[in-house]
Write a protein that binds this DNA or RNA. Structure first.
Lengths: 224, 224
DNA sequence: CAGGATCCACTATTGGATCCCG
DNA sequence: CGGGATCCAATAGTGGATCCTG
């Protein structure tokens, strides 16, 4: 029982609000997805269930989840005090093709232009099926948020373009960071080094820091 | 060999600059103070040595260290990267007499009006006698720094005045915090509770958070 | 492999406890 | 006890590693 694609933003929001309070177990049953008991076996399952329940356009992966609305869906795990427990994955990095892109053309910019955050109330010791869906929040980055994202993105993408990948660590970036994005630490892919030769490096992605998404959610709640 | 009281700010600063680079062992010998090898046996010894070496007016404890100059002396331990390793003690709190004081009349305000910071380069594994004195920095809180200190002080002193001492923890306060200040956790002193009756509570003091003094020192270095 | 993410060992932080001296 | 502070066990934070599905 997967939902059809919502036709308007209002329809999408109404559906999302209707899911608030349900457990992942209940929602999983609705869309015929089994929810593992142990969290380590269910990474990503909340996101997949919500895609189905809300009618996201599957399998068009360079596009936002809701193509015609231009909206990206992100589930975000909150601790009991309401703060994000984790960073938020934005997109993978093509290490060989960052040189000739600017901010407004970047995947990060486009992915974050409009995001529907669906919180999952996720105390670390609570089994996955018992975790509850929270109230959704639709985000468009403010001017100030854009400025911070852009500053980090420009610094990081310049390093990547210059072949400095091996000097990048998760420490860099105030709100946006670069971290490994792979099945394991042994994964490798090609990237140009500082002299343009090939080097093999671990695949990476952009992530939003928890402190940033916390501030975003707080702002959206206040304006609600 | 204790120095006489310096007569001008310039004289005090000149003396402090002249001490930069010396080890605590060397400086201790000059003022006839033995410096224990183990840091745990020498809490406070750096401060006492520098008081003597710079000619601080001893034993007038409601006053600044340099009475006629209105300057308070604080040694501050830095890690190898130059960041403060510890919070900075400001003053003890008289729990029974905070109700009728305002910020400009407070001990915190007066203690921090003008502070001579003398850094001690203090890698945690370096024996006390081998630690070196750093370059001094004279601080008067900026407008912004005042604002932050005042905001924290007003919130905390109001809690104390209302008898809410037992709800105060070191978590409160962005730049100024309240923490125990006693020989041991069993020390107790009288304080009024929320109904004005007596309660026995652990003695406490105001402290500056390390992040705040780090920002202060950075600002002073840039303007140097 | 790319997209959906979270895990968790390690490091950094810190706040309550403590130490010395006069 | 008040002034000079730092110690250090416990917690918070995080960044590199990992898990599942189609």
């Amino acid at each position: 029982m997967c939902a059809s694609e919502p036709r308007t933003e209002a329809e999408l929001l109404a559906r999302a609000w209707a899911l608030a309070g349900l457990t992942l177990g209940e929602l999983g049953a609705r869309v015929s997805v089994e929810v593992p008991f142990e969290p380590v076996r269910g990474k990503g399952v909340a996101g997949q269930i919500l895609e189905k329940a809300l009618g996201a356009t599957a399998a068009s992966r360079a596009e936002p989840d809701f193509v015609s609305l231009g909206i990206e869906l992100k589930t975000i795990p909150l601790d009991p005090s309401g703060k994000p427990r984790e960073s938020t994955f934005v997109c993978s990095i093509s290490l060989s093709s960052m040189a000739d892109t600017d901010w407004e053309q970047s995947t990060v910019f486009r992915k974050l232009a409009k995001v529907l955050f669906v919180p999952i109330e996720a105390a670390s010791d609570k089994p996955l099926p018992h975790r509850r869906v929270g109230r959704p929040a639709l985000w468009t980055p403010s001017h100030e948020e854009q400025r911070m994202l852009r500053a980090d993105w420009e610094r990081l993408s310049e390093m990547i373009a210059r072949g400095d990948v091996e000097h990048i660590t998760g420490h860099l970036g105030r709100v946006l960071q670069v971290r490994p994005k792979a099945a394991s630490g042994r994964s490798r892919r090609r990237a140009p080094d500082d002299e343009g030769a090939v080097q093999w490096t671990v695949p990476r992605g952009f992530y939003l820091r928890p402190g940033f998404t916390a501030a975003v959610l707080t702002r959206l709640r206040q304006q609600e």
